[in-house]
Every structure is written in C-alpha cells, then in structure tokens.
Design a protein around this nucleic acid. Structure first.
Length: 665
DNA sequence: TTTAGGG
DNA sequence: CCCTAAA
C-alpha cells in the first residue's frame, strides 16, 4: 500500500485534490500560530520543562489519529503518514520519528547557545555593580529584592507545566518526543480526521477545543507573569518573546494577540485582542509620577543600602569635585558598579572653602518593568533582571545636573557660578543619569525635577523590559532618563515627605516598601521608541538568526507532495496541509525550500550538498515545478470551489510526468 | 498577512 | 534563512 501510494503521484491527482483557494478571510483560521516561530521560547523552556512534560506525556498522552486524507504531514520532525483506507479497520500509521534526538539536541544546543549569547553579551563586562550584584544574587537589601520577594514567590509558585506558553502543541513533541512517537511504527486506533497532536494532551493547561469530532485545536492560555500584583496574569503569546529579540519591534511595541476560538462553523475563530504594548508605562502610573513631581520638588539621596540619606550632600573641604566633569565621572563610576569615588559618608557640614563635596552613596535602580512567562525559571528571571540592568548601565550614560529642579546645561560654568556651592542650593541639587550624548534629546519629563523618594513607588511601577533580554541595544538605547540620582538633604516639601531628614528612618523601612526602585522620569515608551539606537552600543545579536534546520528527506517529500497537489504559490495552504504542526517551518521557509529544491534538481548530483535528496523526489520537484509553472495562469480561473475533475489534459500530464520521472531517473 | 523574489 | 516590496 505504501509502495503504491508512493508512486501514485501522477498529476491526475492534482485536480482531484486541488483544494480551491478560499478567500483569505476564510483561510486565516489556524495558520497564525503555526507560522510563528517560537522555538526560542520552546528552547527556553526546554531545560526546565523536560522532566515534567515527559511525565505528563506518559499519563495523558492520547492519540486519536485518523486518516481521512491521504497525505503526509510533517510535524516536529515527525512525519506522519496517513494512509487512506477503504474500511474502518485500524490504520497503520507510520510515525517516522526522525528527529527526536536531533530535535533534542537542537534544543539543548539552542539553550546553551542562548546562554552563550548572554555571556557574550555580558561576559566580559562587569556591569553588575555591588548593588546590582546583590540584585543578581538575590541578596540585595534594596527594593529590588522586595520586588522579587513579593512577586518572585509567585513566579516560583506558578507551575511551569501548568502554564506552558507554548503556542503550538507541536513544539513539545518536537523537543520532547513522546513515548508514542519515539517508536518507529506505532499503531493507532483508527479515527476520522487528521492526526491530532498527541502532544495536545500533554500540557496541563491546554484547553482543547474540538472541531467537529475529529479535529482538535488547542487553545493555550498563555499566562505570563507580570510584576503587577494587581493584575491577573496576562495572557501572551510567546511570539512576543521572539519579537522582542528584534529591536525593531520595539518601535511599536509588541502587539500581542490572544487566541481564542469559537465553534462557529466548526472551526476555530481566532479572536485577536490587541494588547497594550508591554513596555508602555502604565498610563496611570506615569501620570501619577508626573503629577507627583509637581508636589515634590525635592530630591533626595539614596544611600548605599537603598535608603535615603539626608546627609549625603554637604560641603566639605576634604574632597574636591571640580565641576561637572568630576561629579559626572564619579557618578558614572558608581553607576557602572565600581566603588564610589566619593565616599564621604556623613561629611561634616563645614564649608571652609569653596570646595564642594558630594557623597553619592549609591544609585537607585531605575524602574524596570520585567515580564517573564510563568514558566520561566527563577534562573532565567535572574538573568533577565541582570541583563536588563546590565543593558541599562551598559550604554553610554550621561550625567545631568539639576539645580532647583532645572537642568544645568552649561558645562563650563563653575559650581560657584552655577550656585552649587552653598548649602542652600545643595538642597535642591540633583543628578540624573541619562543616555549617552549620542542619544536623542531626553524626553519631556526629564526636564522635571527629580523624583523625590517620597514618591510612593510601588512594585507595580516597574518598567518593562523584554522577557528575553537578548540585550537588545534597544534597552540601553531606550533608557532616556532611567537613572535619576537625586540628592537632597532637606526636602522642601517636608509635609509630603514621608522620609524625614534622618538617615535612620529610611533604610529598611523604606526598602520594605519597595522604594528602592525609583522610577525616574520619563521613561515613557514614546520616547523610548523614538530614540534612535546608538550605533555605539549596538550589538550584533540583534536579530538572532534562526538556527538552521535542514529539511529532512521526509519533510522534502511532504513538501513535494503538497506542492504537487496545491501547486506553487500557495505556500500558506501548503504549510497548513503538510507542515501545520511544524512550527519552525514557515510558509516562507517552505517556499524557500521549494526554490532550492528546484535548483537542486536542476544541477548535477555532484554539485549538490547536504543530505542527499532522493532523485525520485527531485524528479517530482521538477515535474511539479514544470507543471505548475505552465498551469499557473490557467489554474487561477479554472478551479472553482468544489471542482473535482480529471481531464484529459491532466491524464496527459500524468503521463508526461511519469515519463519525465522515468527519463530523468 | 501572504506572495514573490532578491540577497 | 533573511528581508521586503507589493498585494
């Protein structure tokens, strides 16, 4: 039977099988998810999910395969051939599990690769300041830790398996071959309809929607963890993650779509819900921040332990900061995680001469909005945070000086000229960390006075960063006024200041209130998106090239067959028909592959490289290519929906095709 | 979003 | 494989 089938690819099958091209509006049902390449996410999850998933698969894997159509379907490197049978006897399904090891290897490889990338990215950069280091180690005493404590637990709690964000069931089987398809030949009970993914049932949280009685579609609730306690877990597609890898996607912010389906027409209807860009400031919060700034026109000092110090700024003869340069340098120094240059520590309030002493004990970490899938590991979360911070600090940072809430732009003026020499003025002295000089002008809010510590910064105000921080330059580029260093001994508006002028008061308490994260200014996304990337900081990993995945012979066969049946130029349909479950194969991929196949078929075998494609397949490629090239125009108008016919022409074609194949063989 | 092609 | 103009 198989044999017969194998050579039964005459062109007479074309019209018979030819599926009328439905209007696009009707063809959108299931494609999107399949098209997305979410390998990254899958790989990310691989390490942590493997065990559980395997377990899951044991207990719940069910396969209700059926062979309504005689066709080859590729998924997960697994080729499933459905063989049509005339009766209802159990059909033998060939599960040629050709890629399990390969897939696993690829997955692990990818995983390590990602890690490597991370290291490359940050390996030789010591961006983790002491504080940041703590942050990374989870020992930080500052707000960051609070953030994580408060929310991190949730992350930990969330079951990895329970919220598998895989967008398509295919991915799983690919990376975690189930016991079922790990065997070469699996006999499955006969059913009607295409072979559903046995993997569907392997995911706990996957909701299966049934289409008719034989097609299963999965609906995934992609839960993502958000650092917002107040918000229910957001559902996201992991496509987001991939998109985030490319800086260009930052421009508009990732638009996520949730997939839901209804049973109208027995088909799933994808409902797309536009989501707010993830990296947008929460509007409310943003507004709130801006408003608050108006109330608190004061700046404050952040102590090394994350607290606020009222004594960090003072005049002192001991150390000299000569002008902006000096202070800038020192701050940068600190900002980059190096020991503070100026560690005056509660310097005496004595100003003998014109020397001004600044003590910057620490920098506050700007707000970071971090979003990771629930299924992410704690480790990955740490990495994410670290990389976000690193990226933030990695770029060129410029220090701005604020006096009386206004930016001092003239770098040439002396401190005394500027008025930064008397204790009075020092009260309202503030610093900001801004993107490097190469950046676009700072966003609106940057002009505003520094945000006082009194501002009630809740964990929610974290600003967002890509879940998968392939530290896109976007990050560092997109950090207008991320860091705001404020220093003020005596807040003007003491009434509003929960933080008194005493150093003691703050520290731990304020920390526990998540104050350590000071959302500074205007990290509004608008600005972020607009700000041109700094060529300096641009990193090569921007758009990580997909890992190469050579087509297997089986895949080629499936492709060839699909093209034979559907013709060229209908890659989406081809994808759906033969590669729907192979998420890593987009229709563009298929088209490309066909292109190369045609080319390969034309060249001499000696010139071919890679895994040899059986000549038989290449012959079919040529034949189909020739056929469809010739019939393309005709097919357009000829095929009306539901038309099934075998014409003389087609019979001839068949003969021709056979001949051609024979000849070339 | 898909197709079609160039790179 | 990637990128992108066009549709």
């Amino acid at each position: 039977m198989v044999f017969k089938k194998r050579f039964d690819y005459g062109f007479n099958t074309f019209n018979v099988r030819n599926v009328p091209r439905a209007p696009r509006s009707n063809r959108r049902c299931r494609s999107r998810q399949a098209v997305e390449d979410s390998q990254i996410c899958a790989f990310e999850l691989l390490a942590s999910l493997a065990g559980q998933l395997l377990q899951e698969s044991e207990s719940s894997a069910s396969s209700n395969a059926s062979g309504a159509h005689d066709r080859v379907s590729i998924g997960n490197d697994v080729v499933k051939r459905e063989i049509h049978s005339d009766d209802d006897k159990p059909l033998k399904i060939e599960f040629v599990e050709q890629g399990s090891c390969e897939a696993s290897a690829a997955a692990s490889e990818s995983t390590t690769e990602n890690n490597d990338n991370v290291k490359e990215i940050h390996g030789d950069r010591d961006l983790c300041s002491p504080d940041l280091r703590d942050l990374c180690d989870g020992k930080s005493e500052n707000g960051f830790k609070q953030e994580r404590d408060a929310k991190g637990l949730d992350i930990g709690k969330s079951s990895i398996a329970s919220t598998c964000p895989l967008k398509d069931p295919v991915e799983l089987p690919m990376t975690f071959p189930s016991p079922d398809n790990s065997k070469r030949d699996v006999k499955l009970p006969s059913r009607k309809g295409p072979i559903p993914n046995a993997s569907f049932s392997r995911h706990r949280n996957i909701k299966l929607g049934s289409k008719d009685d034989d097609e299963n579609f999965s609906r995934f609730n992609r839960l993502s963890y958000r650092f917002k306690a107040s918000r229910p877990p957001a559902r996201i597609g992991d496509r987001r993650i991939r998109k985030l890898l490319t800086s260009k996607y930052w421009k508009a912010g990732p638009k996520l779509k949730d997939y839901e389906h209804s049973k109208a027409d027995g088909r799933m209807k994808p409902l797309y819900r536009k989501r707010k860009a993830y990296y947008n400031y929460d509007r409310y919060q943003y507004d709130t921040l801006c408003k608050r700034r108006k109330f608190f026109d004061r700046s404050s000092i952040v102590t090394s332990d994350g607290g606020i110090s009222s004594e960090s700024v003072c005049n002192s003869p001991e150390k000299v900061v000569d002008g902006d340069k000096g202070s800038s340098a020192s701050m940068l120094h600190e900002a980059r995680g190096l020991p503070p240059l100026l560690t005056g520590n509660k310097a005496p309030h004595q100003s003998k001469n014109s020397h001004v002493k600044f003590s910057i004990k620490s920098f506050r970490i700007p707000e970071l909005y971090i979003e990771v899938p629930e299924s992410a590991t704690v480790g990955s979360l740490k990495r994410t945070v670290m990389e976000a911070v690193s990226a933030l600090l990695g770029g060129g940072i410029r220090v701005g000086v604020l006096l009386q809430g206004k930016k001092v732009r003239d770098d040439n003026r002396t401190l005394s000229q500027t008025g930064i020499s008397c204790a009075d003025n020092l009260d309202s002295l503030g610093f900001t960390l801004e993107p490097g000089p190469t950046k676009a002008p700072p966003p609106v809010c940057s002009e505003e006075p520094p945000l006082p510590i009194s501002c009630d910064i809740s964990p929610q105000t974290l600003t967002s960063f890509p879940a998968n921080p392939v530290v896109d330059t976007g990050i560092s580029d997109a950090t207008p006024d991320l860091l705001l260093l404020t220093n003020s001994a005596h807040p003007v508006d003491t009434n509003h200041e929960p933080v008194s002028s005493q150093t003691d008061v703050l520290t731990d308490q304020s920390l526990s209130e998540s104050r350590a994260l000071v959302p500074v200014s205007a990290m509004n996304v608008e600005a972020l998106n607009v700000i041109p990337a700094s060529p300096k900081v641009r990193k090569p990993e921007l758009a990580q090239r997909r890992t190469r995945r050579p087509f297997s012979v089986l895949e080629v066969e499936a492709l060839v067959q699909a093209v034979e049946e559907l013709g060229t130029g209908r890659w989406r349909d081809i994808k759906l028909r033969a590669f729907e479950n192979a998420d890593h194969r987009t229709y563009v991929d298929l088209k490309d592959k066909w292109k190369t196949l045609v080319h390969t078929a034309k060249i001499s075998p000696q010139q071919r490289r890679g895994e040899p494609v059986p000549q038989e397949l290449l012959d079919r490629v040529l034949t189909a290519h020739a056929y469809w090239s010739q019939h393309q125009a005709k097919q357009q108008g000829k095929h009306q929906p539901g038309t099934l016919r075998i014409t003389d022409t087609e019979s001839d074609r068949n003969g021709v095709a056979t001949t051609a194949a024979t000849v070339s063989m």
